[in-house]
Simulated scan of single mutants.
Amino acid sequence: MQALTYLTADSMFDSINGVFVKNPWILIKGDRIEKVAFGTAAIPAGIPVIDMSGCTLLPGLIDAHNHLSLSPQLNNHPYLMFDPDPVLVMRAITNLTTDLMSGVTSSRCLGEKNFIDFYIKAAINQGSIAGPRLVVAGRGIKASHAHGFVGTPYDGVEAVRMAVRENLRRGADLTKLFVTGNTKSTGFLPYYISPAEISIAVQETHQAGKKVAVHCIGGDGLTHCLEQGVDVIEHAYFATDEQIEQLVALNRWVVLTPRIFFNDARWSTVSQQSVAEFQYNREEVVERHQKLIRSGVKFAVGTDASHGEFAEDIILLTKLGNTIESALQAATISAARVSEIDADTGSISAGKYADFVAVSGDLANDIEQLRSICFVMKGGQVCRHTAKGV
C-alpha cells in the first residue's frame, strides 16, 4: 500500500491558470498527487502532514535549458568540456545535486559529450544518484568550425543524419543543433549548419515523432531554422521583429536564457574579454526580449547551466516585463510543455508527480522571495526541508 501524506501552505501557485490560490491542501499518494483542494481540510487522523505555514507552494521548477556537466563556477569552464568523460560525469552529478536543492525537479538537457546524459538519466531513474528527472538530447550536433563547447562536430548531410539516428537509437528525447554563435560583435550574425543539414535533422527527428531544438541567436540562421521546420529556438537573443512575427505565426517555441548577458561572475571565470563581449550586447538583448515577451510567442526559461541559480533567471524575466505569474509559468507549465513532460509535471494537479517547491513569504507580491526556497519535494520524497529560507 502506498503511503499517504498531506501538504499544506498559506498559498499555492496554480500554473495552469496563472494565479495564486489561498490555503491549499494536497494529498500525496506514493510519488503522485492524489487530490488538490482549498480551504479548511478535514485531515484524517494518522496521516502525516507537512505544514508549510507562512510559505507559498509552487510546482517543482523545470530548467528548460541546461547542460549537466558544464560548470560555470569553475575557471575557464568552456574548455573544461574537453576533459575526460569520467571527470564530466562527476561534475554533472555535483551540478545535479545543486540544481535539485535549488528547486529544480526536472531539467531539459541540451547536449552532452559521448551520451553521458543518457547514463546519468538512467542512474537517477534507478535511484542510484540524486537529481532532477531529465529530458536528454545526447550529443549536441555542431559544425567542426563553429560554436558549441558541449557539442560534437559533424559535417555534411549524411554525417548529420547518422548523428541524429545514433542519438535516437540510444534514447534521445529530442535533437539539439548548434546553428549560430553566442554573441554579436558586428552587424553580421554568421551561421554554421547549412539549410540542408538542418532539414535532414528535422526530417529524421520528426520521423521518430520527436522535436528539434536549435541553439540560434538570430540572423539568417534563425530564418533558415524556421523555414526548415525546427520546433524550438533556444536563446533568440537577436531575433528581428519579422522573425518574432514568424515565430508567433508558426506557433513555435522559444526558450529564453537572457541572464547569460547579465551574469558577470559567470564570464569572469573565463576572461575579462568574455565579460566585455556579453556586456556589449546588453541593451539590444533587453529590447529584443521585451519584444518577444509582448509578442505572445510561446516561451519557457532556462539557466544554460548556471547551476543553483534558477531563481535569478525567473526574477530577471519580471525585470524584462513579465508579470510574476507569467515568469513562474515559464519555469513550470510552459517548461513542461516544451519538454513534453506536461502530462506528468509542471503543475500541482491530481495525477501528476508530487514535485513541489515552497518559498518563505508571499511570492505573489514579491518575486524576490523566490531566493528563499525552504522546501523541495520530488516524486513524493522530501529533498530539502529547512525551518528558515536560505
Rank of each mutant, 00 (worst) to 15 (best):
L316C: 06
V376N: 06
Q290Y: 05
A387E: 10
V135N: 02
I116T: 04
D344F: 12
D31L: 02
L96R: 03
G321Q: 09
I141Q: 09
I120K: 08
M162K: 15
G127I: 07
K35D: 02
P84K: 08
S11P: 02
V135T: 11
V376K: 09
G218Y: 07
Q279R: 15
R294D: 12
R108F: 09
F178D: 00
G229Q: 10
F82Q: 09
K291A: 15
N251W: 01
A364I: 10
A343R: 14
G39N: 11
I348T: 02
N281C: 12
V87L: 12
D117N: 09
T318N: 06
V160E: 03
D10N: 15
A364L: 10
K176W: 05
T98W: 12
Q2T: 13
M101I: 13
I43D: 01
I244D: 09
T175F: 10
R384C: 04
G346C: 01
H235R: 06
H145R: 10
D366N: 15
C383M: 15
S11A: 10
A330V: 00
V390E: 10
N263H: 13
R170N: 10
L57S: 04
T257W: 05
A201F: 06
P258E: 11
V359H: 03
F310Y: 15
T186G: 07
F238Q: 00
T257D: 13
Q203S: 13
P132T: 09
G151D: 13
G151K: 11
T97R: 15
V338S: 00
V164C: 13
T152G: 01
S326Q: 14
V160Y: 11
T8N: 08
G127F: 09
K298E: 00
V357Q: 04
L226P: 07
P44C: 05
K352T: 06
A336G: 08
V301E: 01
A201T: 05
G221L: 02
L226W: 10
P132E: 03
L174R: 05
S102C: 11
H235Q: 06
C374P: 04
D304T: 06
I233P: 08
F20M: 12
F238R: 00
N281R: 01
F149V: 09
G46E: 02
N125Y: 07
A172Q: 01
A249K: 14
P72V: 02
A336L: 05
S185N: 07
A41I: 11
Y154A: 03
I129G: 03
G151I: 01
E242G: 04
L222Y: 02
H147W: 12
G140W: 02
L222C: 05
G221V: 03
G181M: 00
T5P: 03
I315F: 13
A387W: 02
V382Q: 05
Y353I: 05
R91M: 11
S334H: 15
G308C: 09
L100M: 10
L320P: 04
A249D: 11
I120H: 12
Q290C: 07
L363A: 05
A143N: 08
I47G: 02
L320K: 08
K113I: 02
S339D: 03
A146C: 05
A137L: 09
D173V: 07
R337I: 04
P48F: 06
W267M: 11
V248I: 07
M52N: 13
D264W: 06
V19D: 12
A311E: 08
T269K: 14
Q243V: 10
V164F: 08
Y119W: 09
E283A: 14
Y280R: 14
Q272Y: 12
N167H: 03
K291C: 05
I373V: 15
L250I: 04
